[in-house]
Design a binder for these strands. Sequence first.
DNA 1: GACAAATAGTTGTAAAGGCAACTATACTGG
DNA 2: CCAGTATAGTTGCCTTTACAACTATTTGTC
Lengths: 152, 152
Amino acid sequence: MTIQPSACPSGDEKVELFGLLLETNARLARTLGLELEAECDLPLAWFEVLLQLRRASESRLKMNQIADAIVHSTGGTTRLIDRLVEAGLVVRESCPSDRRAIYVAMTNAGDAKLDEALGVHLSYLDKNLAGRLSATERTTLAGLLVKLNASA
Amino acid sequence: MTIQPSACPSGDEKVELFGLLLETNARLARTLGLELEAECDLPLAWFEVLLQLRRASESRLKMNQIADAIVHSTGGTTRLIDRLVEAGLVVRESCPSDRRAIYVAMTNAGDAKLDEALGVHLSYLDKNLAGRLSATERTTLAGLLVKLNASA
DNA sequence: GACAAATAGTTGTAAAGGCAACTATACTGG
DNA sequence: CCAGTATAGTTGCCTTTACAACTATTTGTC
């Protein structure tokens, strides 16, 4: 009844790969999250929102775009943005062309906070990404992830 | 209209890669989690535990090994295992050589549940992994993730 | 135009997980 | 052997998030 670990851990190469993806991600997210929290007092989810906003044209996105970008439920995103607003890092703005929609835009404080966090993030990445993968490998990895991510 | 990864103002290649990793993982985990939940009534975290147990010699692991393998806190793991025990999928066994430690072992029901879940998982993987990456690409990806994961 | 369906966002409720404090057991140096 | 420290696991308390139900608005159809 027991399965030999060396013979067939759980059998399938794809199962292994998926498990590896989950584990790698969980570890990196945990490490970075703790570091951001400790050095900038910024939860990882907040950092992700700010990063998405900076990427966006005019530094603003609608609620549903944020939810999609950071892969949260819409309800969860509402609460998350509530907290960012309360912290003064973003503001909600109404959308003239669609009165259901709400824009979320960065404040100056949010912008500054993101700069600070990016500093920590980059030093983290130097340790944990660049220290382990060459530039070529990183490019390859990014390409594979893009494929994986396509229209998931 | 919003997100322009190519013209990204926060533009470090490593930041991009990290974001991609987070996003890919979140999407895949979300999709698989929903599928497992819908078809087997099995939360993803439970699945991960059962998978780790099957991989282990004698189908059992100590609490801290589980916590480490699935990247949870020890407190969180205690609660998670509580739920699995209540569902009859695993049992706790005392460790004769160290009275602080506790083994978690699969029950027959847990073993059967894992078989069922692996069926769903594999069909999911065929759609979402094999459909997007060739066998060679999957091997490459696995290799890169192992490097990334090393002693995180 | 009006009604049905789709879409954007919020809220109630509940579950999952983290951290820190705690208990119990094991190890280590004197 | 004893004190001090390290380790295994559990528990209290809290935050975060998901899901489903709900409101408000828009769009598509006739």
